[in-house]
Design a protein around this nucleic acid. Sequence first.
RNA 1: GGUCUCGUAGCUCAACUGGAUAGAGCAGCUGCCUUCUAAGCAGCAGGUUUCAGGUUCGAGUCCUGACGGGAUCACCA
Length: 614
Amino acid sequence: MNIIQLIQNQVADCLSKQFDHTVAASDILVNVTAKNFEGDYTVVLFPFVKALRQSPQALGDTIGKALIDNDETFVSYNIIKGFLNLEISAIAWRKELAKLFQQKESIGRIENAGVKTLVEFSSPNTNKPLHLGHIRNILLGWSCSQILKEVGHEVINTQIVNDRGIAVCKSMMAWKKTGNGLTPKEAGKKGDHFVGDYYVAYDQLLNKEYQTWQTSTDAQEVYQVHKKEEQSKEDFFKTYKNRYFNSYSTLGEETKEMLLKWEEGDQETKELWKTMNGWVYEGFEETYKSLKVSFDQLYYESDTYLLGKDIIEQQLTKGKFYKEEDGSIWVDLTEQGLDKKILLRSDGTSVYMTQDIGTAKQRYDDHGMNSMVYVVGNEQDYHFKALFETLKLIEEPYSDALFHLSYGMVDLPTGKMKSREGTVVDADDLVAEVIAEARTSAQENGNLEDIEETEREDIYAKIGLGALKYFIIKVHPKKRMTFDPKQSVDMQGQTGPYIQNAYVRIKSILRKNEDALKANMDSYESIEDAEKTLLIDLLQFPSVLQEAAKQYDPSAIANYSFSLAKDFHRFYHEVRILNASDEAKAFRLQLIETVATILERSMRLLGIEMPSRM
RNA sequence: GGUCUCGUAGCUCAACUGGAUAGAGCAGCUGCCUUCUAAGCAGCAGGUUUCAGGUUCGAGUCCUGACGGGAUCACCA
C-alpha cells in the first residue's frame, strides 16, 4: 500500500466512523500538496462538505485529528479553503525510502497480467527508405510495447510490411530499365536507399514521357475536353498526371502489366521482386538496429493480401454482411455511427479492409493474443474505427481489446514534409546527424578523454539518440508536432541528455560510495524539502506507469522522467552527500540510487539508453 | 459541406479521473565552477489558456456555438 492509498483508507474510515458516511477509498482525491502551501499531501474536502453539512474547517479538523491520532505517518495538518494539507513524519519517509530502495527494479512493475498483446508498428512500404514520420511511429510503437511489458503483458512486436503493389513495381521497372544490373553493394549504397533512388528515377522517366506526350495531338484534345473553364495548360497537366499514368502512359502500362505478372506468379518478375525487396530489408534492418528496436514477427502483405476473403464469405452466409446486386460485399456500420464499408469488390478481389480482417485472424491463429495495438497515423482514424467495429460485429475473440494508437503528423518548421519537394527528412541521415552533434558536444566538454575510442562512440550514440528520441516521444501522440532539427539536437534543458546527465551524476557519486549504502539511516530526522520532493516523485512512478499503459501514452513517462531529473539536479545542488553525517549520507545514497534506477527504467521504456558517463 | 481532431508565453511542449496563484524548456537578460560531472543550479522577464456562452463550490480540462489549423469522406492503401 502506498501513502496515497493509506490516506484514502484513513479518510474513508474516519468519514464512516465519525459521520456514518460511506465513501469508496479510491474516490477520495489526494494530491501532492501544491507549492506555496505547508504540507506534503492534500485531501480535497469539497466533495464531502455538502453531503455532510459541515464547514470545510470543521470537517478538516475532524479528519486531520483522526489521522494524527491513528497513525504515526502524520505529524501535522492545516486547512486552507477546502483543502486538508497533511505533513508526513520523518519515520514514515524513512520507511517509504527503505521500501523503495529495496524494490527499486520492481517498483510499479507487474509480473504477469495474463494478457498477450500484439503491437504493430513501423509497417513501411518497400519502395523507399524510412523517414522522420516512420521514426515517430517506431518510437511510439517500441515504447508502447516496452510499457505494456512493464505492466505484465506478454508482447509481440510486429509489422505489416507493404511489400507489393504498384509502388513497388515502379522501383522494379526503373531498375530494369536503367539499372544495368547494378547492385547496392556495387553502388556502395544502403539497399533501401538504392531502391528508393529507382523509385525517384521512375518518376523522372514518367515525367519525361509525360512532357513529350503533352505536345501530342492526343494531349491537346484531352486538354480541350477536360479542362475546367479558364484553366491554363500548365495547371491542367499538373493535376492530370495520375489519369495520364492510368490511361495513356506506356510506362504506366508496362508497370501495370508487371503488377499483373507479379500477381500471376510470373517467375522472372517474382525473382526481381525478391531480390530488390531483399536489398530493402537489409537496409531497414540496419536502420532498426541503429534505432535499437527489433521485431518478433513480420507479416508481409504479399502473404496476407488474399486472406480475409473466406471470412467474409462465411460471415455473409451468417448475415453479418450483405451483397450488392453487382456482387460486391459490404458491411453496414450505420448502427455504430459509421458508414457502409466495402469488403470485397464486385470482381471478388480484396481491398484494404479485407486484408486487415484476414491478417487479424491470422495473427490470432498464430498467437492467440487477447489484444492488439496498431500504431498508425491519424489519417487512418476512420479506417480503424470501421475495422474494429467490423471485427466486433463478427465477434472475433480479441475484438473488444483493439486500440489504434493514432498519432499526428510530423511537420517541419518550413511546413509539411513533401517527398515531391525533397523536404523529407531521412531516418538514417537524422540518426547520423544527432550522433555527430553529440560527439561535437562531448568533445567540447572534454569529459570522456580518458575513455577508449569504442566506448566513447557508444556513449555518443546513446546521447545523440537520447536527444532525438526524447524530443519526439515527449509530445503527446495524438498531437501534430513540429520537428525542428536544431531543437532535436539540443542537449540542454528539457532533453534526453539532461535526464541522462542526472543519471550519470548519480552513478559518479555511487562509484565513490558503494559501501555506504548499507549504513544505518534510522536516526536521520531532518529530512530536507529537496529530499521529500524526490521521494514523492518516486512514489508516483507506479501510477504514472499505469496511466501510460492505460492510455498508450509514452509521453507521460517522458514528462515524468524530466521532472524527476529536474528535481534531482536541484537536490544535487542544494544537498551535499559525500560529506554529510553518516545517517544523512546513508539516506541520501539510498535515495539517489533509487532515483537512478527509476530514471534508467523510465528511459528504457522510451527506448533510450543511459550512458554511465558523459 | 458531413465526420473526427487540435488551438496554452515570441518558439517547442506540460498540467493525473474537473481542484489552490496555469508550469517547464528554448530564445533574451543577471548571477554561480580551488567543494560529489556547469550537458548543471539560482534569478529576471514573458499569459484575458483563440473567442462567446453554459454546467458548479471550483473549468485550460466537461457541454453548446463561433473562429482558425489539420485529417478524412474511393470497388486506393
